[in-house]
């Protein structure tokens, strides 16, 4: 059975009669890296909040590791197991000292002090922030703060982390730091759901799910999804720059054996196409 399985999930916010999610069915396997794409207001953040029981679906069910998210008895077990990293790094940090902030999650779970210490050290090492453990968060850069926020989630030892646009408020350096961290987490076997609107980040995923107006528009491997340039453009979504270039060149009569997703691929495919 898949780690997360949602079927027919509908959700409407209290102050609106419009459905934010209109019957989403999706599966995420253990150890998989899934990117959830879509422009603002398409319901992707709402979807993220349903995955760790912050919101429970108005209709439909979501199972996380076999637990129903609408069962209040397992809410905290689900939240421990599926961590959620939010957009603004400033608003996620609770304590004035980094290691104490990272300890916040395990402290809430009632973990033994010595075990908390071990987890905090491991989590900070995993995001490469160990030497900053006694610093104050407001003196760090955006990318560093976001990595501390990730460490705070990691200290709960979840098997899946959902990232809700973690790089949206960061500068290019910070964005790269966070993406590198996400990649190392994936290598450690943690299931990743990355919500983003940067196509360059989405191409790193094993699978891309594109959402539009509370529905899934298309899903599959990045090559497959981004080759549908027409469909994505019709819904005002971007494709990676390399794909866009290839698409235009194909329109101009050039032939590509497949759609490139990044600069390197594009260069070698161009060399091949131009013979």
């Amino acid at each position: 059975m898949s780690f997360i399985s949602a079927s027919g999930v509908k959700y409407a916010y209290e102050d609106s009669d419009k459905l934010a999610l209109k019957g989403i069915t999706l599966k995420v396997n253990k150890g998989e890296f899934v990117a959830l794409l879509g422009h603002n207001g398409c319901g992707k953040s709402t979807m993220a909040k349903t995955l760790n029981a912050l919101l429970t679906p108005s209709e439909g069910v979501i199972y996380v590791d076999g637990m129903d998210t609408s069962d209040e008895e397992v809410t905290y077990e689900i939240r421990r197991n599926v961590g959620l990293v939010l957009q603004n790094p400033d608003n996620q940090l609770v304590a004035s000292i980094i290691e104490e902030d990272v300890a916040f999650g395990p402290e809430n779970l009632g973990v033994e002090p010595a075990e908390i210490r071990r987890r905090v050290d491991n989590a900070l090492k995993a995001v490469d922030m160990y030497e900053y453990r006694t610093h104050a968060p407001h003196k760090l850069s955006g990318g560093q703060k976001q990595r501390v926020a990730i460490a705070g989630i990691l200290a709960m030892e979840p098997s899946c982390i959902v990232f809700d646009e973690p790089t949206a408020m960061l500068d290019p350096n910070g964005r790269e730091e966070v993406m590198r961290t996400i990649k190392t987490l994936k290598e450690k076997g943690i299931t990743i759901v990355l919500i983003t609107h940067y196509m360059e980040e989405a191409v790193l995923a094993d699978r891309v799910i594109v959402m539009d107006e509370g529905e899934i528009l298309i899903q599959g491997e990045p090559e497959k999804v981004f080759s549908q340039v027409n469909l994505l453009k019709k819904h005002a979504l971007d494709v990676p720059q390399a794909t866009e270039l290839a698409y235009k060149l194909i329109g101009a009569g050039l032939r590509f054996s497949k759609m490139p997703l990044n600069t390197d691929e594009c260069v070698s495919l161009l060399e091949e196409a131009l013979g």
Binding site: G83, L86, G105, G110, V111, P113, I116, M156
Partner: peptide, 26 residues
């Protein structure tokens, strides 16, 4: 707005008030 975000982030990290909470530093 920050307070709202922070409350959500705290819930994500299983905050349930003081009961059953332990501390890293004793």
């Amino acid at each position: 707005r920050r307070a709202y975000d922070l409350a959500m982030a705290m819930e994500c990290r299983c905050y349930q008030g003081g009961d059953g909470r332990t501390r890293m530093k004793s």
